[in-house]
Amino acid sequence: MTNLARGLVRPRRTHKWTWMRIFLEFLKYFIVITLAISYAFPLYWMISSALKDDPQIYRVPPVLIPHPMHWNNFIDAWRADEFTLYTFNSVFRYALPNTAFTVISSAIVAYGFARVRWHGRDQLFFLCVSTMMIPYTVTMVPLFIIFKKLGWVGTYNPMVVPALFGNAFFIFLLRQFFMTLPEELSDAARVDGASELGILFRIILPLSKPALAVVALFQFMGTWNDYIGPLIYINKYELYPLALGIQKLRTALSQVGNAPMAYPYLMAVSTIASAPIIILFFFAQRTFIEGISLTGLKG
């Protein structure tokens, strides 16, 4: 059968609006909207409670839309502790160096796995991918012992230095991407006398911006959100990242029974800490979705 004929024979989807159909459509939207409301509610509650004052927090039944809205809460909550310092730590001591190191090292390693032919390559790549299955709790304690012997406890080194050695998942992701680029590009450059490192940085990386964006985005998000790493290694308040700072505020506010404005302040700080991630998501929605979808590929 030719394509044309197949197109003619293919049954056209006719949508007869029977009562059954209408009922099913209604049911579908009902379920989806109910689910969407319950998924969105906690974040809505976080943002709206950030704008309330104590009487609105304690009122029964609960206040769904704050009135009046106390926008000042964001500033007051921010000033309740050293949040500017914590944010600086989060970004410049942790997230940015870690992300930069991860992107560069993972790209270099992925190039070695994707575009150079050598013996034992596929076996090592398999080993690399399998390390993703090792639960972090298993290496958590021995790593702590190593970093303690190195005198790195109390610094960000344990969370930043390992990023220089590539991240198995991103190596996998970038290798898959590099493999899709035509080999002729590299061959042409080799004829012109380019080194492999030159090919990687001048030809492959500029063509891999979407994949690099996924890596940078995910790693930035992972480090910005990370709690356990700093919880283990950071023991001085002046080095706290934002995540630990929020918990510190919570402890401070709950120590005196229920301090005034405890919930609005906690919700305000939580809103500020989530905002960059949510804004990043809206600006780079496709990158996020494609990146997450790729994680399923290795299954």
Partner: peptide, 21 residues
């Protein structure tokens, strides 16, 4: 997007909201 966003919010922030809820 509605279903996905909760999974990328910092864990401390979700913990604070759920603690409150």
């Amino acid at each position: 997007a509605i279903f996905f966003i909760p999974s990328i919010v910092p864990a401390v922030c979700s913990a604070m909201v759920w603690l409150f809820i």
